[in-house]
Design a protein around this nucleic acid. Structure first.
Lengths: 325, 325
DNA sequence: GCCGACTACGTCAACGTTGACGTAGTCAGG
DNA sequence: CCTGACTACGTCAACGTTGACGTAGTCGGC
């Protein structure tokens, strides 16, 4: 029962003009009378005509499409970034392709290939652990690319990074200002330079107390237990992310310590639920939604002006004080 | 420095064959010798040729593209569904368009139009509160469509629904089996028939205790306070979703009640964090990732066989017992 | 009453593919 | 040695648009 798709030709035939004239009306160009415009519009309504954007893109070399590549939507903060990307893309009239890689290099390459072959105007990527090589190569071949949170500096590529070191310093300073002095860092080991750890080290000054483990809830539980066995009298934990911080609170209470009575906890990310757990978590807010929106605006400016010099935007991180400190 | 995209013609010229032969090699058709295939492959590598999928789709009428339309990625469980959709789509060789609507009818229509104009092979939608009218109309025009969690039954449309009533009954039975008898339902008011409430009513038998409020953390706090003021001696709360359940725990502890000591709490959704809050939340697991995967498989079967009778798949809901009960 | 500018169209080719169909050459079988 | 089947290609048109360019008609000014 499929209504066969109608084309410019069908509309043109119905109205009695050439397809080119219908095209002009559809695209709001000039060169037609008010009267024909109205007849064309009526025919469009009646036939349920929709422009075929594939055909249009084939000739205009613009698809008004962008691609977003991330690791996984089961990560706690990527959905917020993606939502920001989606909202801003919509504002700019861009439709979005989406792919996740699970940090597998093959999937990154496949996703990128698929999007390029579909003539995206640009790509936003979060490669995280995976090798950014294919992305850099694509950018060198002329693909408009923005990398969010690159693992290492990429001078020739447009990037957006959150100011993690400043955030870590702010977090430690906050713990200090509430009278804590024995502050541990519940971190995670990465190949790349860890800016949170660097900020912690800079701010904590005296002897550092660092434990690393996986950036997951399980990792947070294990890491916290290790912290407690090595330094039983700490009075604060600064965690790599909110998930680990929430796990830390759980481990602390299991060990008979109260939060924030005995030990204060600060997270990093400000995922939505951090406001509603017990106690609500003090954390560093990265405003992921606007981070996503900002990356689309950067990509858009790149699309409009491809020869622009690469930018390296730093996105601020703000302290969100709640009851865990 | 953009390497100009090379086409079948470029490869063909380089090898000294016709574009049609290159096309045959690229698509793994028959009708070429091993020797030419190798020369073509070499030329493809050297030129960095990528097929232009827009041109291909324009003539084959297949884009190997699907669209996913949801409300918002800041909803707690939609990201998991989207991840499931993405993973299964990848397995089936489908690339995904993505859009969110924030429950605004205009945005639903715009997203759908954009995808159809880009020749998607099919669409998966979560309209939630918004009017499903435009979706139904698209389906009637021949767009392959799967609606996940439709607000009301749609006989002519392919749908996947979670078995919410059975889940609610299971939740109440579980509370009963742990010795609770005064069980309140912290619900939310919807225009559409609420299957969770229906299940609760069926299972609870005696006098129901129902309060409705917004399906958010704020709503959960307010609703729980109302429950406590109306029935101070309840011993269990069954919540509409995990967010409300977590808020309920918070409100209960603020009121001096312990969970699960004084009041047991059961949620609905099993969002990831429910396992890591304190106490970990007993909840109904909908396995959103596989729900998403299942919807892609249904859509795919529809694409392969568009004249198939509509299916109405019911996705099971399972009890996940943790420490809040 | 001729020129130039302007309006409102139309024509044609091209974007990069693939479907339909044609064909030269080879090879086995009778 | 002719026929028919098969292999390995090539040719042409079409998918639905838009860019480039052409043109008939109108109208104002001198």
């Amino acid at each position: 029962m499929k209504k066969s798709e109608s084309t410019l030709h069908d509309v043109a035939r119905k109205v009695g003009v050439s397809p080119r004239t219908v095209s002009r009306v559809v695209n709001g160009e000039s060169g037609f009378s008010q009267a024909t415009a109205e007849r064309v519009q009526a025919a469009i309504e009646e036939l349920g005509y929709r422009p075929n954007l594939l055909a249009r893109s084939l000739i205009t070399k613009r698809s008004n499409t962008i691609g977003l590549i991330g690791v996984s939507l089961t990560d706690p903060f990527f959905p917020e970034v993606a939502e920001g990307v989606q909202r801003e893309a919509r504002e700019l009239g861009l439709t979005m392709f989406f792919a996740t890689t699970n940090d597998e290099p093959d999937r990154l390459v496949a996703a990128l290939d698929s999007m390029i072959s579909r003539a995206v105007d640009g790509v936003i990527a979060f490669p995280v652990q995976a090798d950014a090589g294919p992305l850099v190569q694509a950018a060198n071949e002329g693909i408009n690319l923005v990398i969010v949170h690159p693992a290492e500096p990429l001078p020739g590529i447009n990037t957006i990074s959150s100011d993690l070191a400043a955030g870590a310093i702010r977090a430690v300073d906050h713990l200090r200002s509430t009278g804590r002095s024995k502050i541990a860092y519940l971190g995670t080991s990465t190949r790349s330079p860890n800016k949170r750890a660097a900020g912690y080290l800079e701010a904590v000054g005296d002897e550092p107390r660092i434990v690393t483990s996986a950036p997951t809830a399980e990792g947070g539980l294990a890491g916290t237990r290790e912290i407690l066995s090595r330094w039983p009298n700490i009075d604060a934990i600064f965690a790599y992310n909110d998930i680990m911080a929430l796990a830390a609170i759980q481990a602390l209470e299991e060990s008979g310590r109260s939060v924030p009575g005995d030990v204060a906890v600060v997270g990093f990310d400000n995922i939505e639920l951090s406001a509603y757990v017990n106690p609500p978590l003090t954390t560093m807010d990265m405003d992921h939604v606007s981070l996503g929106a900002k990356s689309v605006r950067l990509l858009h400016s790149l699309i409009e002006n491809p020869d622009k010099e690469p930018e390296h935007i730093v996105h601020p991180v703000e302290l969100q004080v709640r009851r865990s400190t």
